[in-house]
Nucleic acid binder design. Sequence first.
DNA 1: CATTTCCTTACGGTAAACCGTAACAGGACT
DNA 2: AGTCCTGTTACGGTTTACCGTAAGGAAATG
Lengths: 222, 222
Amino acid sequence: MFKKVLVAEDLDSISIAVIQILEDLKVNSIDHVKYCDDGLLKIKKALSDNEPYDLLITDLSFKSDHRKNQLTSGEDLVEAINKVQPQLKKIVFSIEDKSYRIKSLFNDLGISAYVSKGRNSMEELRKAIEGTYRNEERILSSDLSFSFNDKSLIEIESYDISILSLLAKGYILEHISNEFKAMSITPNGTSSIEKRINKLKIYFKANNNVHLIAIAKDFGLV
Amino acid sequence: MFKKVLVAEDLDSISIAVIQILEDLKVNSIDHVKYCDDGLLKIKKALSDNEPYDLLITDLSFKSDHRKNQLTSGEDLVEAINKVQPQLKKIVFSIEDKSYRIKSLFNDLGISAYVSKGRNSMEELRKAIEGTYRNEERILSSDLSFSFNDKSLIEIESYDISILSLLAKGYILEHISNEFKAMSITPNGTSSIEKRINKLKIYFKANNNVHLIAIAKDFGLV
DNA sequence: CATTTCCTTACGGTAAACCGTAACAGGACT
DNA sequence: AGTCCTGTTACGGTTTACCGTAAGGAAATG
């Protein structure tokens, strides 16, 4: 079994249970951080001490509070860790259940398992830890049943997200166009942007921009 | 200390910690349900057996799954319980931190304490349970620092929420007006609705309707 | 009863969204 | 080179949002 595991989870109510599982699995060294920044520090310290971690279990969303943090999400944390210890095994344990976001965790961040917090998630988490130890890949808790081949949501790319974010900030088409020109994102004509928004509206079955943003918020895209 | 406590919480990762706290506090009888409907059944059963619960600890949001449920949220559950056992003490333990929604829990549902899930929430929960046992009222975990007297968000009333919900569904002004007429909600002239939306835009510093809905979504108003 | 005040509704002009069409440019293929 | 195809941009007309102003009505005030 894993020797040294780091848990990044802000809610104490949840970290208690996660740590309990790790103890049940006879993990010797278990560390726990409540902030992403602290997580990166622990990883770096362990590396320089020549006692690196061999597993990370992290949440995705962390509450913001008085403390100023560089890394504000599990994605940020994993991305930063990948720069210093890319081979570290990573399990994400979060409430998020949107296939769009989860897929990118596997594809872009190279995590080995995703466990969705739910009514039977402790068992799922245990299985994910054991599976990861056996070098299994792309482990998904069983209440999530989407396929990695299904193209539906993967087609929404960062260009669309950019448009949606600016719309959600109250920008009008012309300002989005200007913003894109300034950031040299193409296409950036008002007409092209308009057309792209139209596609999104068809895709999400939205009546108008207001509706579209409401849906995008529900999907967690912005 | 309380003799018989019911915990309504869908995430097993969290219920484990809550139950642990109750055990530490020497509560004899602890029951746990993962669905609101089950919670109401337990309450009713206990009543008819003449062994009623004396405390409920509930989450607000419950994941939906294959099971069909009448009660889908903690609010629903408390409302239903208030009809059969209004004097039951109720503590809400949730991640929600919007003062607008929390205030209505105290004012409309008569809960005794609200604890926000956070980095030190187990200690807060323990204090809330002990305070409730000593008949304290309106207990609020310390990371939430809004005042009950502050009028800011309480002014947003159900009329505004209705408008925002319909906007979020992609309705244009005229359709909202028709809908309001059909449901005999007044005022329902397009102009009045428009004015009210305008007030909301000023209040939330929104540039336009799209921006407004994005903000409303962030505040959890819709 | 008259007046004030507040709320609701109506109206009109401008800005932006919405939607179809077409011009234009670059790349691929013959 | 010529054509097709595709993606980008431009344009114009209609609808809706946006915003100020004013008319009408009901309740409150004196």
